[in-house]
Simulated assay, not measured.
Amino acid sequence: MRAGRVAGTHTEGGDGDTARRPRIDVAELVRVRAARPEAIAEAAARRARRPLLDGGGRLMIVAADHPARGALGVGDRDLAMANRAGLLERLCLALSRPGVDGVLASADILDDLLLLGALEHKIVMGSMNRGGLHGASFELDDRFTGHRPEDIERLGFDAGKLLLRLDYTDPGSLTTLESAARAVDAMAARRLPVFVEPFISHRGPQGGPVNDLSAEAVTRSLAIASGLGGSSAYTWLKVPVTENPDDMARVMETSTLPAVLLGGDVGDDQEAAYEKWRGALRLPTVRGLVAGRSLLYPADGDVAAAVDTAVGLL
């Protein structure tokens, strides 16, 4: 199965680039999964790999690990990411664009992309902790329910990513913090990069966690994330842009670890997001961008144009 040659029909409409997306034959994917589950491991074993940093030493990664945490919304569309064929079509289109280095996703999505042949010569990043379900009372007790370090090594993937949200009033954050440190140790032992996405969080008026994007909070989160584990040799930081983008230069002085920017859900003002990213990408420790919903589900529906613009910022 190859992404550009899988026959099928689109199940979404009204988007600006629908005609350009490769069509995903869900029935064929299910048939292979049911009849030959070993095909996934076989596809991983023969996948053509590349160095983490290639060419100019910058990274452009498309993220799609949100569904495994039950976070399916984009803007005011609560279930935008729930259509798997539509998500795969968007991912295959994004991965086909020049300058896109790879993808961050949970096992089920990466398995589909392996079967579709969409991960050749791409960086493949496994999402490690998805236990902090969106909207759950235990959301900040974000246990490791996704890729283990041994899975990433076994499948020949290139890196892992973990989410580290810390609420100083929530004991569940300590479980996440300790688990994250052990994951950093296990990845370093295998010489595999791990991208740590840290936040200082608090409970909002509705009870759910709210990430503090003030300069002080982001600075503190980077200091904590940088000190995880017994070695930082293979640790990268995945950093949000602060509320005031002018603070980013000072914030990024907190660590010498290489970093990528977190894209996040930018809403309808895509141009404002690009401008925030543009400034931060000039900083010496920032080596790239990891963006998901903002590129896969842009307000105007044109995935290719959103991806190309983001690549241009690098």
Rank of each mutant, 00 (worst) to 15 (best):
M1E: 10
A3R: 00
R5A: 06
G13L: 00
D17K: 01
A19K: 01
R21P: 02
R21S: 05
V26C: 02
A27P: 00
A27D: 15
E28L: 13
V32F: 00
A34F: 14
P37I: 11
P37Y: 10
E38Q: 15
A39V: 04
A39Y: 06
A39R: 03
E42I: 00
A43P: 02
A45H: 09
A48C: 07
P51F: 12
L53S: 05
L53K: 05
G56A: 13
G57F: 10
L59N: 10
H66A: 11
R69D: 01
R69C: 04
G75N: 03
A80H: 02
N83G: 14
R84Y: 00
L88N: 08
C92R: 01
C92E: 01
S96M: 03
R97E: 15
P98M: 12
L104P: 00
A107G: 09
D108P: 02
D111F: 01
D112M: 07
L116M: 08
A118N: 08
K122R: 15
S127Q: 07
S127P: 00
M128P: 03
R130V: 07
G132Y: 02
G132S: 07
L133V: 13
G135Y: 04
A136T: 10
A136Y: 12
S137I: 05
H147Q: 08
P149F: 02
D151Y: 05
E153W: 07
L155K: 05
A159H: 04
G160W: 01
G160L: 04
K161P: 01
L162Y: 01
L163C: 04
R165A: 07
L166Y: 11
Y168F: 12
P171E: 07
G172A: 08
S173Q: 01
L174T: 09
L174C: 03
T175P: 02
T176K: 12
S179R: 10
A180H: 04
A180E: 02
R182G: 07
R182C: 11
R182K: 14
A183L: 06
V184W: 08
D185H: 04
D185Y: 03
A186H: 10
M187E: 02
A189Q: 13
P193H: 12
P198N: 05
F199K: 02
S201T: 15
S201R: 01
G207D: 06
G207F: 10
G208H: 13
P209G: 12
V210I: 15
A215D: 12
A217D: 14
V218Y: 06
V218A: 09
T219I: 03
T219A: 14
S221A: 15
A223S: 07
A223P: 00
A225S: 14
S226C: 07
G227L: 12
G229P: 11
G230V: 09
G230L: 13
G230H: 13
Y234P: 00
T235G: 10
L237H: 08
K238Y: 05
K238Q: 10
A249D: 13
A249F: 09
T254D: 08
S255G: 04
L257C: 11
A259C: 11
V260N: 03
D269G: 06
E271G: 07
A273I: 00
E275R: 15
W277Y: 15
R282H: 10
R282G: 12
P284W: 14
P284V: 11
R287S: 13
G288W: 08
A291R: 02
G292I: 06
L296V: 04
L296P: 05
V303G: 07
V303P: 04
V303H: 07
A304V: 03
A305T: 11
V307I: 11
G312W: 09
